[in-house]
């Protein structure tokens, strides 16, 4: 029986359905790949742990048990809260100061030229050195960790905002002038939207760095928090606990990225030309 050619309408419908269909397929494939990777890593880990003593490489099962033991304790969540409140505080200071000074240096070329080396200096000093300084200045307090997070995150945000102000399109400022917009309106309607993308990518990066260096600071100069617990577990050769803390952190950072940062970014920058558009 001859097959009737598809009606134009049916053809059109098939075409319009294809992209979403493809996207779903791609997402399913991605999830399958990720699951396969996790299984593979677990197998490698399990096999490796068979030939090593537990204090060197504990088995997945042992780590799981250590983790389940940790999660039910109140201290686990308390330490998590302490570490993340330090990271958030340091990050918040870094964001406010980074944005303010980034705007200032971007707006004033001479000032920017004069202060540029300061950034280079800050960037060349390792976080560990900041941690040591912080320990000297603030002792065993929250501020040690906050300071280290700040010193790591601030230059990143500042540099990006500064570069962002430089990339503001002069044509758009001229346009605003032809409409007799005030300085404040130009800031709000031209500068801010231009700076937002570089600020956001810097903030994401800075938060990740901040969270990582906070642990360094805590192992050196704190009596609470995840970093402190990690050192304690290492000192007591509780390797399974070190693993449990580490995996929790990794999971948390991935969740933060996927559930909070990525959606915000997609929403804020939906106007950007996506790769693959005509």
């Amino acid at each position: 029986m001859p097959v009737a050619p598809p009606t134009p309408l049916a053809q059109e419908r098939a075409e319009t359905r294809t992209p979403t269909h493809l996207a779903r397929e791609r997402r399913l494939r991605l999830i399958a790949q990720r699951l396969a990777l996790i299984v593979l890593l677990l197998i490698v880990w399990q096999v490796a742990s068979l030939n090593a003593p537990a204090f060197v490489l504990p088995s997945p099962k042992r780590v799981w048990e250590a983790w389940s033991g940790l999660v039910v304790t109140a201290n686990f969540w308390k330490d998590f809260g302490i570490t993340f409140s330090r990271v958030f505080t340091g990050f918040a200071f870094a964001a406010v100061i980074g944005v303010l000074f980034g705007l200032l240096l971007g707006a004033n070329e001479k000032l920017g030229e004069f202060f540029e080396p300061v950034l280079t200096i800050i960037n060349t000093v390792s976080s560990t050195i900041w941690a040591i300084f912080a320990l000297i200045w603030f002792g065993l307090s929250n501020w040690t960790t906050i300071f280290v997070v700040f010193m790591t995150a601030m230059p990143l945000i500042l540099t990006n905002v500064w570069q962002g102000t430089r990339s503001v399109n002069v044509d758009f400022i001229e346009l605003a002038q032809t409409f007799r917009m005030s300085r404040l309106q130009v800031m709000q309607k031209i500068y801010l939207p231009t700076i937002l993308p570089p600020f956001f990518s810097a903030a994401r990066l800075a938060f990740g760095f901040g969270a990582r260096v906070s642990l360094v600071a805590e192992t050196l100069g704190a009596s609470s928090g995840i970093g402190y617990r990690l050192r304690q577990a290492a000192d007591l050769v509780q390797t399974d606990q070190v693993f449990a803390w580490t995996l929790t952190l990794v999971a948390l950072m991935i969740a933060l990225e996927a559930l909070i940062l990525k959606p915000i970014e997609n929403r804020l920058f939906s106007w950007k030309k996506r790769a693959g558009d005509q």
């Binding site: 044509d171 758009f172 001229e174 032809t178 409409f179 309607k189 031209i190 939207p193 106007w271």
Partner: peptide, 12 residues
């Protein structure tokens, strides 16, 4: 009002 040579549309 003033119209420029290019459209100067704000991409965002």
């Amino acid at each position: 009002t003033y119209m420029f040579q290019d459209d100067r549309l704000l991409p965002w």
